[in-house]
């Protein structure tokens, strides 16, 4: 890895900024063009430029997971990515889960198991569970714990989040 890092890159580097720059974000299947400063995080772009406030900002420094979204299918902390890094990428947020007013099975399981209290960490928890179940439809309890171990919940809904994730796996299995 180290040798690769010092070798000059062939990929063309696009210089962004200073000042605002136009990028394209594909969010929940819809393409949005937004003008952002290079320092704007993906989280702020979603929340402020697109009005998608489902992903929460609780720390803004990659320590809590409340802003978890999926970028090209992988869960990331949206506060730790710059919006310009996500130019042209496909982003899935909590707002994209429910379809036609019907809760996604993971959301349904969270509600039924009461896997939320204040709910501020919930969108992040659900997105982490989504990433897990997309990858592994039949997780064990340990898999679930590991998948949400980067999502803090101060209300302590963890036991019910575990239950909800396992229930959601079942619901998705029945549905498919």
């Amino acid at each position: 890895m180290a040798t690769e890092a010092v070798r000059p890159r062939r990929r063309k580097i696009t210089v962004r900024g200073p000042g605002k720059t136009l990028i394209k974000l594909i969010v929940n299947g819809e393409t949005h063009e937004v003008l952002v400063e290079p320092r704007r995080t993906l989280l702020d772009a979603l929340r402020k430029d697109l009005g998608l406030t489902g992903a929460k900002k609780a720390c803004d420094e990659g320590t809590c997971g409340a802003c978890t979204v999926l970028v090209d299918g992988k869960p990331i902390y949206a506060c730790m990515a710059l919006a310009i890094e996500c130019d042209g990428k496909s982003i899935e947020t909590i707002e994209g889960l429910a379809q036609n007013g019907k809760l996604h099975p993971i959301q349904q399981a969270f509600v039924e198991e009461d896997a939320l209290q204040c709910g501020f960490c919930t969108p992040g928890q659900i997105m982490s569970v989504k990433a897990l179940l997309d990858e592994n439809p039949t997780p064990t309890l340990e898999d679930v714990k590991r998948a949400v171990s980067g999502n803090l919940c101060r209300c302590g809904a963890y036991p019910k989040i575990f239950k909800a994730a396992l229930r959601a796996a079942k619901l998705l299995h029945q549905g498919s």
């Binding site: 406030t53 489902g54 992903a55 707002e95 889960l97 429910a98 969270f110 919930t122 969108p123 659900i126």
Partner: peptide, 8 residues
């Protein structure tokens, strides 16, 4: 619950 679980 649904409002909290959907980000609404």
């Amino acid at each position: 619950g649904p409002e909290r679980a959907t980000g609404k």
